[in-house]
Structures are given as C-alpha cells and as structure tokens.
C-alpha cells in the first residue's frame, strides 16, 4: 500500500496549502464549541435535563467538519481533478483514478476525526462536558454519518459536468446544512416551524443520531435517523459508483 500513502501524503500537503479545510473543518467547530460554551456554560439543556446544553450540542458541532469535507471539499476536489484531466491521467498508469479518490476520502476522514477530537478536548477541558453515551455506538454513528455525507459529496462531484456546477451544488447543500441542520445554530433554539424544515436536511437526521448516541438516550430515538443515514449512503453511494464520470 506504499503508493496509497505517498499519494495521501502529497494530497494532504496540497490540502493544507489550500487552507480552506483548516478553516472550515478544523477552526470552525472549535470556535463554535467555544462560543456555545461561553453562551451556555454548564446550563442544563432544559429544566430538569440530566445533560447540559453544550453536551447536547456536542454531537451537532462534531459534524461541522464532516459537512465541510463531505459536501464542500470532496465534490470540489473531484470536479477540479476531473476538469484538469488528472483523473484521466491516472487511467494511463498501472494504477487507477480510484487511488486518488480513496486518498481524498481518507483526507476528509482525517479532518473530521481531528475536529472531533479537538471539539471533545475543548468542551471537556474548558466547559466540563461529560458525555453519558457509550463510545462505540457514538463512533459507529459518527462513521455512518461520515459515510452518508461523503456519499452525497461523491454524487455531486462524480456527476457534475464541470467545476462550476459542482461548486453551485456544493454551496446549495453546504450552507443550508451548516446553518439549519443544527450543526452551528442549535436545533433546540429554532422555532418549531423551522425545525420542521430542518428535519428535511439529511444532516439534521445525522445529528439526531449523534446526539442520541453521545447522550446515551434510549434506542427508539435513533431508529429513524439511522435508517435515513443508511438509505442515503446506499442510494448516493450506489448512484455515484454506477454513473461516476471520469472525464
């Protein structure tokens, strides 16, 4: 797997030089957790809640990087590489363009995991967050949400005819999800009507799943979002594998 790691190393360097993901996937969630920490402190989520508002928001904030990488980073880099014929160049080598795609997926996974760790450290060290849920179901959900969001990004990047379309679609998906799915603006402070609209966004469901698993809420809360995440991953992933445009 040597060629994978060399490719990954180069692509990571390029991504760091680009700076966008450092800002949108690493800094932004940390800033968000600090802001919510300052605003809400250790206040309970609601009167009589066993967990604080910030603990409730933890699952949501941890998806900011997934959203940035999956829905913005991935489609842009794929359509960029296609437009520059980089994917095509890989077709006349003993390797294949999937190597490059795999490296890109790995990079955005790395960003998401770094963001998750940082958000956890900041919220635990500075704002006393102590999550009641168990680790494995949470990490499993985190992986599933990642898979699901990345498959949306693959679909957009893989099928957009050019960079311009990809970037419009990415913006249309990214900004509403970032703002209205609860990743930044907490779902709980939204009026009920807005919540109903937010529920349509796939990331909202992903966040519900992460909230439930991070807080250790009963299993019946997670079934619907769990199914939605799996369906999105299968449909978007399937379509993008079947119809991916290499050039």
């Amino acid at each position: 797997m040597n060629k994978f790691f060399i490719t990954l190393r180069t692509q990571i360097k390029l991504s760091f030089r680009g700076m966008d993901m450092i800002i949108f996937a690493i800094c932004m969630p940390v800033v968000m957790v600090v802001l919510l920490g300052i605003i809400y402190g250790v206040k309970p989520a609601y009167d009589g809640a066993t967990y604080s508002f910030l603990e409730q928001s933890f699952g949501a904030i941890s998806t900011i990087a997934i959203c940035a990488g999956g829905v913005m980073g991935l489609p842009l880099v794929i359509s960029d590489y296609r437009q520059k014929k980089i994917l095509k160049r890989f077709q006349v080598t003993p390797s294949s363009p999937t190597l490059l795609l795999a490296a890109q997926v790995a990079i955005y996974m790395i960003y998401s995991i770094i963001a998750l760790v940082l958000v956890y450290l900041v919220s635990a060290l500075f704002f006393g967050v102590n999550l009641q849920g168990s680790l494995l179901p949470f990490l499993g959900s985190f992986l599933l949400v990642m898979l699901s969001m990345f498959s949306i990004g693959m679909l957009v990047g893989g099928l957009s005819p050019n960079m311009k379309t990809a970037s419009i679609l990415a913006s249309v998906l990214y900004f509403p999800m970032l703002i209205f799915s609860g990743a930044t603006l907490p779902y709980e402070v939204m009026p009920t009507s807005l919540q109903k609209i937010a529920d349509v966004l796939p990331l909202t469901q992903g966040i519900k799943l992460l909230k439930a698993t991070s807080l250790g809420l009963p299993v019946e809360n997670v079934l619907f979002p769990l199914i939605i995440m799996v369906i999105i991953a299968i449909i978007c992933g399937g379509i993008s594998i079947r119809f991916f445009k290499w050039e």
Binding site: I6, T10, L14, K84, K85, I86, K88, R89, T93
Partner: peptide, 25 residues
C-alpha cells in the same frame, strides 16, 4: 504518456508531482 492539456493539481511542487507519479510504478 504526456497529455495535451497537462494535468496537475494547484499548489503542487515539482518534486511532489514526480514522487506522486513515480509511486504508481
């Protein structure tokens, strides 16, 4: 193969592009 529209990512250095190509063989 050298392509007509030569294809490389933005912000890549000469040695990185060479390494990235070399690792495929």
């Amino acid at each position: 193969v050298q392509f007509q529209e030569t294809s490389y990512p933005d912000k890549i250095r000469v040695d990185e592009l060479c390494q990235e190509t070399g690792c495929l063989y």
